[in-house]
């Protein structure tokens, strides 16, 4: 099988070698246009640059100068286009690569994103990092009550949130909703619920009913997590319902089932694995979110962490963070186990 002739002969049958088709060459003109776009982006970067660093290009008789970072950007863009062209990537792919670089340069420069600052701040970073690397293990057990509150908050919010989310998902998906109007309305409500982040809900509920100062922290926390869970479960589940096998649904219709029966008998069994796994997912999110929610005063492990941060007791914060990682890992392993059993 070393030569072409051997490779084409198997037993008595002879395969004819047909000419192999060439990969189509992308349009050079379009790539030229993309290079033009890159130059336009370069001009934009030049006009809006913050940094005064310049690059000097000595040509002997005259020395040209150019802004340093935009020139690097231009070089990266042109190089990428060249590689894309040589690899015969279609013009859409080339445009995508160009867009990726342009957007990340533009967005990064807008917020002055740079890692160059970190070494100069090292004197500030170092003592804290040292405290974090030497956690106060004995502290973990003293906040067990806060952990219990966090986990209870997550359990309550997950169970109620999933139940409400299931009903909303059934109403939101055009496959299972009574009519288009209901589905559109529920979808709109759901987008509003989701557009407010968990911390936003927590702030709202703390403002309305009172936080830890009134002894109502966990209650506000549960309500905040609840709204957060409803939004996620309703969204994910209604999309799962959109893609169920329509056959059993049609069969239930043909058997004279009403809408509720049809959704219960033909749709729910199909989406049940997804539903349970979304439930486990939001439970995990709740544990994590409750750490952030403590900052706005809803109780749980987050408030304990906030307290220690304010006291600059970084070794205690580190202990809480490590325990948080462990708890989230455990919850994750537990939910993976359940999912494997279920599917």
């Amino acid at each position: 099988m070393s030569t072409t002739a051997d490779a084409t002969t198997r037993g008595s049958a002879t395969l004819e070698v047909t000419p192999r088709p060439e990969a189509p060459r992308p349009s050079g003109l379009v790539y030229l246009g993309l290079a033009g776009l890159a130059v336009l982006a370069f001009i934009l970067f030049w006009a809006t640059r913050d940094s005064g660093d310049i690059l000097l290009i000595p040509l002997g008789f005259v020395t040209l100068w150019a802004p340093l970072y935009p020139v690097i950007g231009l070089a990266v863009m042109l190089l990428t286009l060249l590689v894309c062209y040589r690899a015969r990537i279609g013009t859409m792919g080339g445009f995508g690569a160009l867009a990726f670089i342009t957007m990340s340069y533009w967005a990064g420069s807008t917020v002055n994103f740079t890692l160059l600052e970190i070494p100069s701040r090292w004197s500030n970073v170092e003592p804290r990092l040292r405290a974090f690397l030497d956690p106060n293990w004995s502290y973990i057990w003293t906040v067990r009550d806060q952990w219990l509150i966090t986990i209870s908050m997550a359990v309550v919010a997950t169970l109620i949130g999933c139940a409400i989310g299931l009903v909303l998902a059934m109403l939101a998906s055009p496959v299972s909703s009574p009519n288009k109007g209901v589905s559109q309305a529920i979808k709109a409500v759901n987008s509003v619920v989701r557009s407010i982040p968990d911390v936003g809900w927590a702030l709202l509920f703390v403002a309305f009913i009172g936080g830890t100062a009134h002894g109502l922290g966990p209650m506000a926390g549960v309500l905040a997590l609840l709204m957060f869970n409803i939004g996620i479960v309703a969204k994910l589940l209604s999309e799962t319902i959109d893609s169920v096998n329509p056959g059993p649904v049609e069969a239930a219709d043909a058997a004279g089932a009403n809408l509720t029966q049809r959704n219960r008998l033909a749709i729910l069994p199909q989406v049940l694995p997804g539903f349970v796994s979304y439930g486990l997912y939001v439970f995990e999110l709740n544990i994590r979110a409750s750490a952030a929610l403590g900052i706005v005063g809803v109780g749980g492990i987050g408030s304990a962490m906030m307290l220690q941060l304010n006291r600059f007791a970084f070794e205690n914060v580190a202990a809480i963070l490590i325990a948080l990682i462990l708890v989230v890992l455990l919850v994750d392993m537990f939910s993976m186990y359940i999912r494997r059993k279920l599917l």
Partner: peptide
């Protein structure tokens, strides 16, 4: 719905809830 309770239907792809 009343009519469909008296008229049964069988499909090419069986349309069972397999789970």
């Amino acid at each position: 719905r009343r009519l469909r309770s008296r008229v049964g239907m069988i499909f090419q792809s069986f349309n069972l809830v397999t789970r």
